[in-house]
């Protein structure tokens, strides 16, 4: 059994569980109002999709041999996690810091974490890029972007 429970089959099991949970939601769904003129209810189409999803997940479970080798993330795990952290921080700080400042800080942090540590290059590049994006969207395309703390500074 140990050999037969490979990564593909674990993935298939996760898919089946997810499909079953969503199918349960679809089957127990109570519509707010019932319109008799509608042949298809709001959950008819998702139900068919979920039945198809579960069927093919079962086929994947049955046929999922351990042919594919795993992906080696040992070398890239740390930079990947660092990138994820800095991108998440950028996405969440963007409304509070505003586009130019958030973009500048993000580019400096991202380049530093991804191994580009020459600040004589990184800081001008990040400053130029952040300013250019701000000018292109605000002045050329006239799209209002978040100003964040720039509003407080007037």
């Amino acid at each position: 059994m140990h050999g037969s429970l490979n990564r593909n089959r674990v993935t298939a099991l996760v898919f089946i569980c997810l499909g079953a949970a969503l199918l349960y939601v679809a089957l127990t769904f109570k519509p707010g109002y019932v319109d008799d003129s509608l042949v298809m209810g709001p959950m008819s189409y998702p139900k068919w999709l979920l039945i198809g999803w579960i069927t093919f997940s079962i086929i994947y479970l049955v046929t999922g041999k351990n042919r594919e080798c795993g992906v080696d993330l040992t070398k890239s795990a740390r930079p990947l996690l660092a990138a994820l952290a800095v991108i998440t921080a950028y996405f969440f700080l963007f409304p509070f810091l505003g586009l130019p400042l958030a973009t500048f800080l993000f580019l400096v942090a991202f380049c530093f974490l991804e191994g580009m540590r020459d600040f004589k290059v990184v800081i001008p590049v990040a400053g130029f890029t952040a300013t250019m994006f701000w000018l292109v969207f605000e002045a050329v395309l006239r799209i209002s972007m978040p100003r964040g703390i720039m509003d407080l500074l007037g």
């Binding site: 990138a83 950028y90 963007f94 973009t103 580019l107 991202f110 580009m116 990040a126 994006f133 978040p146």
Partner: peptide, 20 residues
């Protein structure tokens, strides 16, 4: 072109594309 700068620019464009 330094890959971190290139990738950083892609992230910035992506975020703006989602927000606008």
């Amino acid at each position: 072109f330094p890959p971190p700068v290139l990738l950083g620019l892609i992230v910035v464009c992506s975020l703006i594309g989602v927000y606008i």
